[in-house]
């Protein structure tokens, strides 16, 4: 992940990235490690809002011991390149939950990359990512779920939805499953859509101005991502940052 040679877009996990922006901060810092001890439950969040034109890469390596749980909330909105990666290993009866939103405009490249490995039996994981992309922005989710031979009764889902506000914006969604156990439940879905034109006309017919109508629909689209942030101050900060970013796009 942190090799000293600058990666190229030939590497699968850099395929949609902005290597020129990456070069400005290369080599990126060592990954942050989160080790959740047996039976523990932890919550983390990241608001990636680096300044305009800058690049930021946040790599997380997370291990979740038996019977433990990790909840992570991420809002990825800042910079020319904003990239957040998670390499997660889950023990038995353990759970990993990722809720994330990407909101981009201009010529931003914003990415969430995950590799979640279920190593032992009876573990679960959930990933919910909502992306809103306008102008010439590119938003990508690359997520692999790997279920080891011993990890029977794994239950994992990925729910990935993107909304494009302009024809020139791009959404990439690549959920991937690699399963070696046989008794496993994995669900993944990825959709890319646009604002519902019928809804926009209905709202206009009631007098709502277009910017208010679009903002309301977009808020509804990302609603839920930060619903279960436990710390109210953190929740408010994430929601306020998301709303402020949305308002720059409508």
């Amino acid at each position: 992940m942190n090799a000293l040679t600058l990666p190229t877009r030939k590497a699968e996990e850099w395929r949609y990235s902005d290597i020129d922006a990456l070069a400005t901060i290369w080599p990126t810092p060592a990954p942050s490690r989160i080790d959740v001890a047996e039976g523990d439950s932890v919550r983390h969040h990241l608001l990636q809002d680096v300044g305009e034109g800058a690049a930021a890469v946040h790599d997380y390596v997370i291990t979740i011991a038996d019977g433990a749980r990790c909840d992570f909330h991420v809002l990825n909105i800042g910079g020319k390149l904003g990239r957040v990666t998670f390499t997660v290993t889950i023990g038995s009866n353990a759970h990993f939950e990722l809720n994330g939103a990407i909101i981009g405009g201009g010529d931003q490249t914003l990415e969430i990359i995950t590799s979640v490995t279920h190593e032992k039996p009876d573990s679960t994981s959930g990933q919910t990512i909502r992306s809103i992309l306008g102008q010439r922005a590119t938003g990508s989710y690359l997520g692999s779920i790997n279920v080891a031979r011993d990890a029977q009764r794994t239950d994992a889902f990925q729910s990935i939805k993107a909304m494009l506000l302009d024809r020139t914006a791009t959404a990439n969604a690549k959920p991937e499953l690699e399963i070696f156990a046989d008794d496993v439940k994995c669900a993944h879905g990825a959709t890319v859509g646009e604002l519902d034109k019928a809804a926009l006309f209905y709202m206009a017919s009631r007098g709502m101005d277009p910017a208010t109508a679009k903002t309301l629909l977009l808020k509804a689209f990302v609603a839920g991502v930060f619903d279960d942030v436990a710390d109210e101050a953190v929740k408010d900060a994430l929601e306020a940052a998301a709303l402020a970013k949305l308002e720059t796009l409508v």
Binding site: M203, M208, A223
Partner: peptide
């Protein structure tokens, strides 16, 4: 009538009415 998931009737109507009033 059009369905709008995630937007409550009250929110929808309040924003509509206030948009009209602003205008």
């Amino acid at each position: 009538p059009v369905e709008i998931p995630g937007v409550s009737n009250l929110q929808f109507l309040r924003e509509s009415l206030n948009s009209q009033r602003r205008a």
